[in-house]
Simulated assay, not measured.
Amino acid sequence: MPTGVAMRDARRQLFDAAERILLRDGPHALTSRAVTTEAGCAKGVLHRHFADFDAFLAELVLDRIARLDGRSAALRAAAGTGTVVGNLAAALTELFDAVAVSIVGLVIFRDDLRARLRAAGSTGVPLLTEATAMVASYLTAERDHGRLAPDADVETLAPTLIGAAHLLFADRTSAPPDASAVRRLVITVVGVGG
């Protein structure tokens, strides 16, 4: 491995390398050696920036969760525009890209990683919990706009949408579901048309 080569934003390069591995080979292939090899750096670089590999993985997941903030704000801002089904279908499709699906598998598979994420304040299944909050916030805004029934149970609809969408997108070996399948899921769960 190269040594003495300056890396710009080593953390970002390591995260990007981990995401490429997740896309190409899945969560089972994610090791410290695989990440540093993919990033083109010595293994010591990872350990200079993170206490150990589980700390790296926790930061990788937290980085992905932090990206939801922008998505959540954009989705809330879409309330009252377009269609509820279209807005949710687009948000779910963007949310459940192959990397996110792999990260959920990684979190479920690694007990130590879940423990670290819980210690950092994440609850439930990290990433899915935050995605549920994002969808609940949007559904609440749509209910306030009168585009959902006044008695719509947002606290049940949001996790139902996230769980059903996760199952729809979870098969890493097949092509992602088409737009019509995602729209059908949203229509079925939320009970609104088009």
Rank of each mutant, 00 (worst) to 15 (best):
L46S: 01
A100H: 08
V5C: 08
D171K: 15
R116H: 03
T173A: 15
T132K: 01
D9Q: 09
D16Q: 05
G70H: 02
T31M: 10
R114N: 00
R71L: 10
R110A: 01
E59N: 14
A55K: 08
T31C: 12
D171Y: 03
P126A: 12
F15D: 04
F56K: 02
R76P: 02
L139Y: 03
A10Y: 02
A79L: 04
V61L: 10
T132Y: 04
G70C: 07
S72H: 07
V5G: 11
S72R: 13
A141K: 00
L168G: 01
F56I: 08
L157D: 00
T31A: 07
R64M: 10
L23T: 03
R11S: 09
G193R: 13
T36P: 08
T129N: 00
V125M: 03
P126K: 08
D16K: 06
D63S: 12
L139E: 00
A91T: 00
A175Y: 10
E38F: 01
I187R: 02
V154C: 11
Q13D: 10
L88H: 06
L157H: 11
I65A: 14
V190Q: 00
T140C: 05
L62I: 13
F56C: 14
T129S: 12
R116E: 06
D153Y: 06
A10T: 07
H145P: 03
P27V: 08
L88R: 09
E155K: 04
L23Y: 01
P2G: 04
A170P: 03
L128Q: 04
P177T: 01
L128R: 04
I65K: 05
H49S: 15
K43D: 09
S174G: 15
D63F: 07
A10K: 08
A158P: 01
T188L: 07
L127E: 05
K43E: 13
L75I: 04
A136P: 12
V35C: 11
A74R: 15
L95C: 10
R33G: 09
A164N: 11
V182A: 02
L30T: 04
L157T: 06
S32W: 12
L167D: 15
T173R: 15
V84D: 02
P126T: 13
P159F: 03
V101W: 00
A51W: 00
L75E: 05
T81Y: 11
A66D: 03
P176V: 13
R20L: 05
G124R: 00
G80K: 05
P176T: 07
A179Y: 08
L148F: 14
R20I: 05
G44E: 12
F53R: 02
A120Q: 11
R184I: 05
S137R: 09
D153T: 06
T156D: 11
A91E: 07
T93W: 01
F109H: 14
Q13G: 00
A10Q: 03
L46D: 12
L62K: 08
